[in-house]
Simulated assay, not measured.
Amino acid sequence: MSEDQGAASGTSESVDRDGTDDREPVDEGRPDEATTSGEAGNGKAAGDGSDSGKADDDGKTASDEAGEEATEREGADSSEVPPDVRKYERFKKMDGAQYDRVNEFLRDRTYITAREWAIARLCADFRTETGVEMTKIGENLPELVPFMTDTYTPQAVNQARHSFEGKVTKAGATFLYGAMSGFFTAEDVDEMMYEVTEIAKFLLEVEGVDLDVEDELEAEERISSVMREVRESSQRVRGEEVRCPECGHVHEVSGDEDPGE
């Protein structure tokens, strides 16, 4: 599904700075379950015109009965939530967070939106042997992620996941090109790696991942090692030949010569 397709019908319009659709479905006006015809605003028990504080034959007042009915509804709603959704512990550190604040934080530091971040994580966690449980994710989105307030259609879930994957691919290509192009020194690349690693670790911690110090240091060393190999390989590639983009002429470049000169 292309990124410019609508996330779901009845959504509020909000377009990201890079043109990606970042819309969150809005409530289309569900009826208030707490009120029914003839009962709203009169302070009386339904049907008999008696005062709400007056007890019935069983010694219960109308307000007692209303409270019991509300409790029963809440119990029924809770039983409809799948067990794996109720036990889902990701994003619990963000209880009370607002979508706009989370989105602003991400957009200042990454290319992804809060919607794409949350749904990409859910798609990874709710993947089965036959695929991703798009319907379960969409229907239970507010239960799974504190800063998501509305449900999504399976199509909207798929669109957000596709958007996340596309942005990660583009960001990866941009970074690797910068690292391989010779525009930055080895020290510059190390500094960038440190900064982006810190942001990535923070997001993982917010999701509820406990990072062991030893594992963290090992991962950083492995990443740095890979980046050193990438840089060395790119230097050899750039030193083997340089093709002029204007005439197509290929000329040799010595290993000590700066490609930018």
Rank of each mutant, 00 (worst) to 15 (best):
A114Q: 03
L144A: 08
R228N: 05
V242I: 12
A186F: 05
E33Q: 14
D125Q: 08
S78E: 15
G53K: 06
Y194T: 11
S225L: 09
E3P: 10
E65T: 14
D215L: 00
N103I: 14
V206T: 04
A45I: 11
A55H: 06
M148V: 05
I119S: 09
D58T: 10
E74V: 03
L217C: 01
G67T: 04
E246Q: 12
D125K: 06
E232C: 00
D64S: 04
D4N: 12
Y88V: 03
I199T: 11
R231W: 01
N140I: 01
A45D: 13
A46H: 13
T169A: 10
V145H: 00
D258C: 07
G239A: 14
G178Y: 01
E143I: 00
V242S: 07
D210R: 00
K92R: 14
D215H: 00
D150V: 07
A173F: 14
V237A: 13
V26T: 13
E229C: 02
A46T: 08
L204T: 03
A186I: 07
D84E: 13
S9F: 15
S12H: 09
A156M: 12
E80Y: 05
I137Q: 13
G260M: 15
T71Y: 10
S37K: 09
D32S: 10
G182C: 03
Q5G: 10
T151D: 12
D258I: 07
